[in-house]
């Protein structure tokens, strides 16, 4: 058993974790932050994407004890109760949501991209979500949504 302290969605946690527990298990089974999804368990699909210290990681490939001292954002930390982040809003407006299982990971990868590059090209957007699989074949609409969100965020900043 390890004792770790970390910040998740701006909230401090101090918690016991078994040695073989992955970050995704800690989020889902211990903290019930079930917006983080498991699609493959081997870092291929990106459904378990979270932002850890400013970088996107597959939470199925990070052991919980490795998250000691880190700052994590999950989909639950993207927006307050009834509000939507511009990326989430753009996903709805552009019809980029189908089955929804890839959506939390896609939204977080998009956030990580736009945090670093506020005006990406479509190619850069594709590169930014290249670690996230969508099996409903909705990539074009997802790229459209991220493009729209980037525009909205830039305009918000101007105002």
């Amino acid at each position: 058993m390890n004792h770790i302290s970390l910040t998740i969605n701006k909230k401090m946690y101090s918690i016991d974790v078994e040695e073989d527990v992955r970050l995704i298990d800690l989020l889902r089974d211990q903290l019930f932050l079930t917006g983080t999804k498991e699609g493959c368990g081997e870092g291929e699909c990106g459904a378990c994407t979270v932002i850890m210290d400013g970088r996107v990681v597959n939470s199925c490939l990070v052991m919980a004890f490795q998250a000691e001292g880190s700052n994590i954002t999950t989909i639950e930390g993207m927006s307050d109760k009834d509000e939507l982040h511009p990326i989430q809003k753009a996903f709805l407006d552009k019809g980029a949501v189908q089955c929804g299982f890839c959506t939390p990971g896609m939204v977080l990868s998009a956030k990580s991209l736009l945090d670093k590059n506020e005006n990406p090209t479509r190619e850069e957007i594709r590169e930014g979500i290249s670690g996230n699989l969508c099996r409903c074949t909705g990539y074009n609409k997802i790229v459209d949504a991220i493009e729209l969100a980037s525009k909205e965020i830039r305009e918000e900043k101007k105002e």
Binding site: T34, G35, M78, L84, Q88, L92, D93, V97, G100
Partner: peptide, 12 residues
């Protein structure tokens, strides 16, 4: 907007 859309983008 699809009925389940908001819950899905929020991870809910």
């Amino acid at each position: 907007i699809r009925v389940d859309g908001k819950a899905k983008v929020k991870g809910e």
